[in-house]
Amino acid sequence: MPYTTEEGGRLNNFAKEPKIYQAEPPTEGQKRTYIFLGVAATVLVVGLIVVAFFVSQKT
Score class of each variant (00 low, 15 high):
Gly9Tyr: 00
Gly8Gln: 07
Tyr21Gly: 01
Leu37Val: 12
Glu24Ile: 06
Tyr3His: 09
Val46Asn: 04
Tyr21Thr: 15
Ile35Lys: 14
Phe14Met: 03
Phe54Tyr: 10
Lys16Tyr: 02
Ile35Ser: 07
Gly38Arg: 02
Leu44Ser: 14
Gln30Trp: 05
Lys16Arg: 07
Val46Ile: 15
Leu44Gly: 14
Ala52Trp: 04
Thr27Gly: 01
Lys31Leu: 14
Gly29Met: 04
Leu48Asn: 06
Leu11Val: 14
Gly47Thr: 08
Leu48Lys: 00
Arg32Ala: 13
Gln57Asp: 02
Gly29Trp: 04
Thr59Arg: 13
Ser56Lys: 10
Leu44Ala: 15
Gln30Gly: 04
Lys19Leu: 11
Tyr3Ile: 12
Pro25Val: 06
Leu48His: 01
Ile35Gln: 15
Lys31Asn: 01
Glu6Ser: 11
Lys58Gly: 00
Pro18Lys: 06
Thr5Phe: 10
Val51Lys: 07
Gly9Met: 10
Ala40Ile: 05
Ile49Thr: 08
Ala23Thr: 06
Asn13Glu: 11
Ala52Phe: 03
Ala52Glu: 02
Glu24Thr: 12
Lys19Asp: 06
Glu24Trp: 02
Pro25Ala: 10
Tyr3Arg: 14
Gly38Met: 01
Arg10Phe: 05
Ala15Trp: 01
Leu11Tyr: 08
Met1Gly: 13
Ser56Ala: 13
Val55Asp: 05
Val55Thr: 14
Phe54Thr: 07
Arg32Leu: 12
